[in-house]
Amino acid sequence: MSVPILEVVDLHAAYGRIEVLRGVDLAVPRGAVMALLGPNGAGKSTLVKVISGQKKATSGDVHLGGVHVRGAQTEELARLGLCTVPEGRSVFPNLTVQENLTLMSYAGVSAEAVLETAFAYFPRLLERRSQLAGTMSGGEQQMLAMSRALASDPALLLLDELSMGLAPLIVEELYDTVGRIAASGVTILCIEQFARTALKVADYAAVMSHGRVVATGEPGEILETMSDVILGGAA
C-alpha cells in the first residue's frame, strides 16, 4: 500500500490544562473515504483543527502525503491542497456568491474554473451569483461551501459535521455531492456525530472517544462494535 495521504501519530492537544486529544493514531489511505464517528466531546473537531493547522498540538506528528506538517500555517496547508470545510456555515455571509467562489481560487485552481465547476454542479448558485451569501438558506450556503471541495481538486478533503442543523433532505443532497467528489478520486476524512449518512459513502470508519481513536475498520464492523456500546451506555 502506498503512503497514506493522512497519517496522524500519537497526537496530543489541549485547551488550557485540559487534554482533549490523548494520543490519536489514524491513517487515511489515498483515494479512500473515511468516516470519523464518535460522541460529542470526543475530540473530533479538535483533531480537524490540529490537522488543518488552526490549533497547535502539544505533541505528536501529522503527515500529509508523507510530509511532516505539524506546525505548518493553515493557509500554507490550504494552498498545498488540504481543503477543510469547518462545521457551521463556512461561507462569508457579507460577500456575494461569486465573491465567495473567487476566494476559493487560493487553493490553486483558477477563479474561472472554480466558477465554471460550481455553477455547472449547482445551477442554483448561478441564479444567485450576485446575492449575499448570508441571505441564502442554510442548504444553499452549504452548497456554496461544498463548491470549494468540488472545484479545488484537493489532495485531502476534511469535512466537519456537514449535516449539523440541516434538514434531512439537504443532508442527503450534500452526501450525494460527497459521493461524487469521492468518485473522482479525492481522499476524504468525514467527521460526523451521526453515522447513518456518512457510513453510506465511507470505505472505512474510525471511532473516537475521550480523545483517542478507539476503533477502526470497515463500516459494517464498526457499526456492530459500536451499537452495543452506545445502546448500553445510553440506558
Partner: peptide, 23 residues
C-alpha cells in the same frame, strides 16, 4: 435524527433504527 443536538442515546437510537438490525 439528523442533528448533533440530541443526547447520544436518542440520536444514535434514531440513527440505528434506519440501519439493518445488528446485535
Amino acid at each position: 435524527g439528523y442533528s448533533d443536538e440530541g443526547g447520544e442515546g436518542d440520536s444514535w437510537d434514531a440513527t440505528l433504527a434506519d440501519l439493518p438490525p445488528v446485535a
